[in-house]
């Protein structure tokens, strides 16, 4: 089974997200970066399927040269091929990103054969556009279901489970198909020593793409109003218990 996973490099902020003075980007001066969480699980889902059915996992990202780091992270946990679509400057909008990803997939498939599955995250952690995967799947003419909390695939049919208010929904897609993965579908593994070594040596191929801008343009980032609280300290250590229970009574949850 050949599986492609699209991952995005995103900053990993702590207590608050700071914005650069010009309001155009998250201030990443003091931040580390990570693979967007849903996609981390998509990589794990792909690796598990290949462990079961054979095949290989390729990871693809569109981002700055530094996004190689996230591709290597994916290799350290089991992906074998890595493809970077390098861009400079600010993030590309969803339509432009989807076009570039679609073109890259077409090129890869023309030389390597079709992917049985193409996995995305349900939404990227930073821009939360909820659309790049759906757009790419449509352009490629493949079925797509987002929000997968369960995925089985045998080469012919992919079975996707997803959560709804009413319970669980089960979808059956003919393969090749596309699926958007949600965190919680699995617990991503940590890299092994061998994996770490492989990731250092892995070759990252670069595919330069041109794509025209779409119609959603960022004007500026803004921080939502912050909640300032005059925290009432109920006490220190276990001696605070009666004060806590008094409060629970007052708030009406101790009956």
């Amino acid at each position: 089974m050949k599986i492609l996973v699209c991952v995005k490099r995103v900053p990993a902020p702590g207590a608050r997200i700071n914005i650069t003075d010009d309001g155009q980007a998250v201030d990443t001066a003091f931040l580390g970066f990570t693979v967007s969480p849903h996609e981390e699980c998509a990589v794990e889902a792909a690796v598990q399927l290949v462990e079961k059915h054979g095949g290989e996992v390729t990871v693809l990202t569109l981002g700055p040269a530094e996004a190689e780091e996230q591709l290597r992270t994916a290799v350290s946990v089991g992906a074998v091929k890595a493809v970077l679509v390098p861009i400079e400057g600010r993030d590309w909008d969803p339509q432009r990103t989807a076009s570039a990803i679609t073109q890259t997939i077409r090129q890869l498939e023309s030389t390597e054969g079709a992917y049985d599955l193409i996995l995305f995250g349900n939404e990227s952690a930073d821009s939360c556009g909820y659309q790049v995967g759906v757009r790419a799947a449509y352009a490629l003419g493949r079925p797509m279901v987002n929000g997968a909390k369960g995925l089985e695939a045998d080469g012919q049919i992919a079975i996707v489970r997803r959560e709804s208010d009413a319970g669980q929904e089960i979808y059956q897609l003919p393969m090749p198909s596309c699926v958007g993965i949600k965190e919680g579908i699995n617990l991503p593994r940590y890299p092994t020593m061998k994996g770490r070594l492989a990731s250092k040596k892995a070759e990252v191929s670069r595919v330069v793409q041109e794509a025209s801008e779409g119609g959603l343009k960022m004007i500026t980032l803004q921080r939502p109003p912050e909640r300032v609280s005059n925290t009432q300290i109920l006490g220190t250590g276990p001696e605070a218990a009666p004060a806590v229970v008094d409060l629970l009574v007052e708030l009406g949850v101790f009956k």
């Binding site: 909640r227 925290t231 300290i233 006490g235 250590g237 276990p238 605070a240 218990a241 229970v245």
Partner: peptide, 26 residues
């Protein structure tokens, strides 16, 4: 801790001691 400064109420202490004490009090 960020959660302490944002929360309406806080207890400063080891949760392993504070949580059982609250249950005992209840």
């Amino acid at each position: 801790a960020n959660i302490v400064t944002k929360a309406g109420y806080a207890v400063i202490g080891d949760l392993h001691k504070v949580v059982p004490a609250i249950s005992e009090e209840i």
